[in-house]
Design a protein around this nucleic acid. Structure first.
Lengths: 211, 211
DNA sequence: GAGAATACTGGACATATGTCCAGCAATCCT
DNA sequence: AGGATTGCTGGACATATGTCCAGTATTCTC
């Protein structure tokens, strides 16, 4: 019976979430009022009432800031392991040691829980034509690729990112960089994953000294 | 000057932590009082005062439940609001309506909790030279840009992504695409944010039909 | 066209909550 | 011995905060 929020109600929910992560606690009714410029606290309160009715929010009557956005606990943060170097035989062996993890929610990445997802740090310039550059973190899903997908493939014991193409029913790999030739697999094509997301943190994001 | 808590003060800190993870928000002074069986709220309040003095706790005077255990910045997922369209005057006006949120952990993005962070959906091809393409989600931080940073700037009432450069002490903007000329600001340069991360979910990440 | 839901304004009230003052006993420091 | 710190009791106050009532306008729904 939990219906969907209206556009306005979605904004309220987002504000509550944002306030919680920024300040460590949910906002008060009047903080919501001020943020949205309401003239009365009742405007905010009635939104909360509506959201509670829709079971999108839980409240504790009479208790300050006692707001709990439902489904936020369910908003699972997936830990995606980062493999700097993928050895042969992946993903059957379990000896890989992730160089860390990146955390993101399922909705943002459109990740299916059942899927095996991992990330690779991109090295080289073989995919600059697809605007994937050295240092990027590419999130991959373990599945069969479709024509045109960008995939991580195992070639000569090394993992590289290439575009997966099919011509005359024969799959081959193409680097998105004229410097590199197409790769026609001699025997078998080992696809380790299909790109579903990209994550970049510029190195030059220099920050001023903290005050 | 941050000394160590006494045994009792440690219990207080632990209770605050536990309450926060269990209920989603820190306790009130009187909730602490009741939990420890104090006869007066002042008993709890003076503990909080002592903890704040030792810099183990941060409080917001006059604000309910505004307790923050220091050094407790766990791996928390930040909700970053996505602004599809940023109106003039941002960020002073409060009329912005996020089109949603993207969630990521603080470590991945190197986000400071105090910083104001938001995201913009990239439109156009003005930054393809920097490998930022249409549809990308750019995470920005509200701060002064440095030479070479990629920034969101307000030009003619529209927000566009450009590289921020300084020559002869004069700042100007450069699109990373030869199609577009440099932008020398006539009067004032309105910088809305500095890029700290990029997030891409390929549209062509075609998936096979779910079983 | 009636009714419900949404999205508010405006004012008011009860209480939840942070804070302050005065005081007491025990412990630690020097 | 004396002062500072800790750990409380007891009472009180100001306000921060949740909540309620009445009313208006718009949009959606059937």
């Amino acid at each position: 019976m939990s219906s969907n929020p209206t556009a306005r109600q979605k904004q309220i929910l987002d504000y509550i979430r944002r306030h919680r992560t920024r300040h460590g606690l949910p906002p008060t009714v009047r903080e919501i009022q001020n943020h949205f410029g309401f003239a009365s606290p009742n405007a905010a309160a009635s939104h909360l009432r509506a959201l509670e009715k829709k079971k999108l929010l839980q409240r504790e009557p009479g208790s300050a800031r006692a707001l709990r956005v439902m489904g936020d606990d369910r908003k699972e943060v997936t830990a995606i392991p980062i493999y700097g170097d993928i050895p042969a035989g992946f993903p059957d062996t379990r000896e890989q040691r992730p160089d860390g993890c990146v955390y993101a929610d399922l909705d943002s990445l459109d990740i299916r829980r059942t899927a095996r997802t991992f990330a690779v740090r991109v090295r080289g310039d073989s995919m600059t034509g697809a605007h994937i550059v050295d240092g990027d973190l590419v999130v991959l899903e373990l599945r069969e690729p479709n024509h045109g997908n960008i995939v991580a493939a195992l070639i000569d014991g090394e993992t590289t990112l290439k575009r997966y193409l099919v011509r005359n029913r024969r799959p081959f790999l193409r680097a998105e960089n004229p410097k590199y030739p197409d790769l026609i697999p001699a025997h078998e094509l080992v696809i380790q994953g299909v790109m579903i997301a990209l994550f970049r943190k510029p190195k030059d994001a220099g920050r001023p000294i903290e005050p």
